[in-house]
Amino acid sequence: MTIEHATKSSPKRLSREREHAWGVFSVSIALALLVVWSWIESDINIDRLAASGVRIGDFLSRMVPPDLTVLPVVIEASAETLRIAVLGTVGCIFFSVILGLLAASTITPRFVSMPVTWLLATIRGIPLILVAMLMVGAVGLGPLPGILAIAFHATGMLAKFYAESIEGVDPEPVDALESAGATFLQRMRYGVWPQIAPDVVRDTLFRFEMNLRESLILGVVGAGGIGFYIQMYVRAFQYEKVSTLTIVVVFFVVMIELGNNLIRRFLR
């Protein structure tokens, strides 16, 4: 860079740097104000916070020893939660394959992929608990509204992941198959699928784990599973039963995660 050039560009660069610094400063102030406003409006009292330690200690002491007489009920409710998560995941895979293909801008015309993308964003924006309450109203109590709620809610995320995987496909191997005379389905099977399979399996397992965790609370609104017992025991102050329930849920979630990790390692 010549001296003349440097002198000419310096004021511009300085001005840009100043603008950037002001931008960072303004955003920082805005964030700080947001935190202060949240703190004040939430009526957080330090004394109450300090006093809660004693109460939490009391709860924990009442959780020991766990009441194992509820173990069969808790295991059965956990199994129902697992069934809700499994069937909900199957449902969301079904819808995600269709909507994922339609949302992928590389294989679907833009006038189709854009509205489908918006639809998926809208689905993601609706809270699961709200969907579950609507489903309970529509089909009644039990695991079915839970399965439908999970299938609907999870499709918003999984279909987006599927679409992104398809959009990331290298088109050349697919073109090569087309050049060799492969049909559309053959190109999908031998050109697209091997490229997206690791991502699709990883995303589906991740979504299954999320579905399992989210299914735990569905019972609170009557959509089946262990959530019903969580709210019942907590409201009845039966902490020794909550303790059994917590142990089973933790065991159960950890086992599923270990299983998923094994599958991921196998696929790598």
Partner: peptide, 23 residues
């Protein structure tokens, strides 16, 4: 193809068999 256009995650045999998909 100039950049080979092979399916990287598939085996050599499968890539060669892909040449048979038209027939």
């Amino acid at each position: 193809f100039q950049e080979f256009a092979l399916v990287e995650s598939a085996s050599v045999r499968q890539n060669v068999l892909n040449g048979r998909l038209g027939s």
